[in-house]
Computed example of a mutant assay.
Amino acid sequence: MEVNVLERLPNPIFLKKLMKIQASLNIILCQDEWLRYHSFVQNWDEGVCMAKIDNGAGDHLIILFSPDGSIIKGFDHESELSPYGVKTVTLTGTREKLRFQKVKVMVLIF
């Protein structure tokens, strides 16, 4: 049974809110910045926000949010899609600036 991961993702506006909430809660619950799993950088680049989940053991999820679209990159070393079994998919953004060809998608876990 093939699962289309892209169809299961929340819309980017809602996802951005969720990531901000997770980062905010992590700041409240974890005093030591270097131990935090969740982070959010509002002005990562001009017009771009970055959300990140990093467990410190190599697994991570990075999401870039921009007016032109969103980019999601994740890695889980225990996934069936680890580097030794990478599957290739094609993603196309809604605008010409956001266009990907044969992006390696490892895992998207929320």
Rank of each mutant, 00 (worst) to 15 (best):
G69L: 12
I27N: 13
E80D: 15
E2S: 05
L64S: 00
I71L: 13
W44N: 07
K52D: 02
S24K: 10
K87E: 09
M1S: 09
R36E: 00
S66E: 01
I63W: 04
E46F: 07
G69M: 03
K16T: 03
E78A: 11
V89Y: 11
Q101P: 04
M106T: 07
P10F: 01
K104G: 05
Q101N: 10
I72L: 13
V5T: 09
E33Q: 11
V107M: 06
R99K: 13
E96W: 03
P83N: 12
F110C: 04
L64P: 00
H38T: 01
Q31D: 14
E2K: 06
P83L: 14
H77I: 03
G69K: 08
I27R: 13
T88S: 06
I63A: 00
I71N: 11
L25K: 15
A23F: 00
N55K: 03
N4I: 09
G93E: 09
D32Y: 06
R99G: 04
V48C: 10
S24F: 10
S39Q: 02
K104Q: 10
S24Q: 10
H60W: 01
G69N: 07
S24P: 01
I109E: 11
L15M: 14
N4M: 09
A51S: 01
V103F: 11
I13A: 15
S79P: 02
G58Q: 07
Y84A: 10
P67R: 15
A23C: 11
K52Y: 11
D32R: 08
